[in-house]
């Protein structure tokens, strides 16, 4: 591996306990441990997090934006999955 080939890692930060890890950006590192150290310096200089995840970008499998319609269209006509779909008389409470 030459110096130009340091793999790309995606960085996820948990900003405080109780919240999920959220994607914040990416960086290059020789290995995962270095990626954590770089992520600390690049993305948490102002206490932005209490926990870091790094994942090799090459290991992420993403959906194809070109197929977004086919993938997500089936949910479009299923408004009955939302509570507001159901008409309930005013006088009925706690529902």
């Amino acid at each position: 591996m030459s110096e130009g080939d340091w793999p790309l890692f995606e960085v996820f930060i948990r900003s405080r306990s109780g919240l999920e890890h959220k994607h914040v950006g990416s960086l290059h590192a020789a290995d995962a441990r270095m990626a954590i150290e770089h992520a600390r310096d690049v993305y948490t200089r102002r206490q932005e997090g209490v926990s870091l995840w790094v994942v090799r970008s090459a290991d992420i499998v993403a959906s194809d934006p070109g197929e977004a319609d086919a993938l997500f269209e089936p949910a479009r006509d299923k408004v009955y999955r939302h509570p507001t779909f159901y008409a309930i008389p005013e006088e009925v409470k706690n529902l």
Binding site: M1, E3, D5, W6, A30, D31, M34
Partner: peptide
Amino acid sequence: REAAAAHAE
């Protein structure tokens, strides 16, 4: 950079 790459390898 070379040392880090060698270590990772």
